[in-house]
Amino acid sequence: MDWMTLSPEEWTTVQLSLRVAIVATLLSLPFGIGIAMALARGRFWGQSLLNGLVLMPLILPPVVTGYILLILFGRRGPVGALLADHFGIVFSFRWTGAALACGVMGFPLMVRAIRLSIEAVDTRLEEAAGTLGANRVWVFMTVTLPQIVPGVLAGMILCFAKAMGEFGATITFVSNIPGETQTLPSAIYTFMQVPGGDVGAFRLTLISISIAMLALLGSELMSRYANRRLDIE
């Protein structure tokens, strides 16, 4: 069973991938809910533009998205320089950059799932909460949010899965540095480039599959629990 044992480098890759995907998902979440809410409920100028912008990474070649990120968030890029100078946040060739790339690529999937669930919310319940004295923020927190939990969970899982598998944008933006930006897909790709690397590639592939499977099972369980709590009338 020797071939099953992960080398320390491979273990680092797995941990890094998980960290990148979890950070990407959690940091996208507030923005995802906010933008989904704006797209589902808002009526403002530029709504279609915002919608297009959010969906863009889904349609663009990932390499193009990675390149745009490099231009914007690189050390000398307008946003990257600003963040580095004022907040000390650096993206280029760091795992944070990988998280950013994965977050951007997963974002459209997350927004879409949450938006659909917001559109399915019974607004009459929100009206009722309003007449009981809840202002808009409270209505959202106590009535809307509990109703969209299944959609939010689905969006998070999609975003996480996308982040675990992201390759093109990540490698373009932050390269393929072992221990810093080498996530599972990059590592598998690297293994395939060297002679005798297929055993390592196979091991990492198995791990990818297991993580994806666990994530799906977890989301299934959670949304079942949420649905039972909602107890749709």
Partner: peptide, 30 residues
């Protein structure tokens, strides 16, 4: 939310994710 009118809707509109007690006490927070 600042009118303090109690509205009983034709279809009840109880919050499905809350218990009866939580439904009853909902307006009390405000």
């Amino acid at each position: 939310h600042r009118r303090r009118v109690g509205y009983v809707f034709q279809e009840g509109r109880l919050f499905p994710h809350l218990t009866v007690r939580q439904n009853l006490l909902y307006g009390r927070w405000f």
